[in-house]
Design a protein around this nucleic acid. Structure first.
Lengths: 179, 179
DNA sequence: GTCTATATGGGGATAGAC
DNA sequence: GTCTATCCCCATATAGAC
């Protein structure tokens, strides 16, 4: 339970933010070091290889997922609304790590692919338990996924277009729950 | 109207397929050459730089989009259904180039970001003209986007989960059109 | 724990043979 | 039009000073 040193967390966060903003190619150890205000050697002290950074992000992702699944299951508004509402980036830890996992999965990094499949499955099951209908649950999840992907896209269009949509999409979720 | 040589097309296709399957990092000129069964020099004859490959993909993307927008506007089933139905990968040219643009945009390649914003806007407008309600149109588009992103994800879960969902999602589209 | 070298490999791109 | 050979840079990783 030793709390990890600050520099380590800064480097890991910088790694995830760079993956999101600039992609895998630009996410070099140099870039991570610069963003975390460390030297390359400093980063490599905490993460002996680049894959170690990915593995650490994966671990944090798993932890965030477990917390998220718990609050989703407990949410007063219900799992479906909770899921869609938090799909529009709030800057939470889960967002950060989720987008990082998406980028890693898109490079066919198998551990990320598997972790995403696991959490997608879990989300879908929670939503389906609430709304009953399988395909309504899938529709709700796809809407959330769409929001997630747009929220991670560079450029202003996505932000401007969907910023005021979440409330309306939540009404649609309520509607799908009833029918 | 000179038809471009076969080798050029093979290289461009290989580039897009690699972007989709392995990501930007792994999409090296070497890898493109190997997949297209050419030498590195052969690829670099047709595309003098790596950016030239991206630009060629962008150009093909624009052409595919114009065709797609035209058939969407004319579709007997209406734009919304057409959009969702074709979001679940059919292996069309548009799919190939769209996913390539997604990957390039995710690396913050500005021309790809702008091209995607343009076509998203155009899709959304066509759908909104049909369904009337702004937020119903957004929901339909997000469902399509969600399908697109899942269809481009490595691993079997997405394919297995949504393969039989499209018909049901289309019913939901009809429902949204009416309400 | 963090830094500055430095070795090594690979990717992008050029030159020139065929 | 396509190939091979080569150069150069940059990213990863190591060694060792502080």
């Amino acid at each position: 339970m030793s709390r990890p040193p600050k520099a380590r967390n800064k480097a890991l966060l910088a790694y995830c933010e760079l993956l999101r903003r600039d992609g895998e190619r630009a996410t070099t150890i140099d870039a991570v070091a610069a963003r975390a205000e460390l030297s390359k050697g400093g980063v490599l002290y905490h993460f002996p290889s680049k894959e170690a950074l990915a593995e650490a992000a994966l671990e944090e992702f798993r932890l965030s997922c477990e917390q998220d699944l718990a609050s989703m299951a407990e949410a007063a508004e219900g799992p479906a609304r909770h899921y869609v509402r938090t799909s529009w980036t709030s800057g939470s830890d889960l967002d950060t790590y989720y987008i990082a996992m998406l980028r890693l999965a898109q490079s066919s990094w198998q551990p990320a692919v598997e972790a995403l499949e696991w959490v997608h499955q879990a989300w879908l099951e929670l939503i389906q338990e609430e709304v009953g209908d399988r395909y309504a649950a899938e529709a709700i999840m796809l809407i959330g996924e769409g929001l997630y992907h747009h929220s991670s896209m560079p450029g202003e269009w996505s932000r401007g277009t969907f910023a005021r949509s979440v409330e309306h999409l939540l009404e649609l979720v309520d509607h799908l729950k009833r029918s």
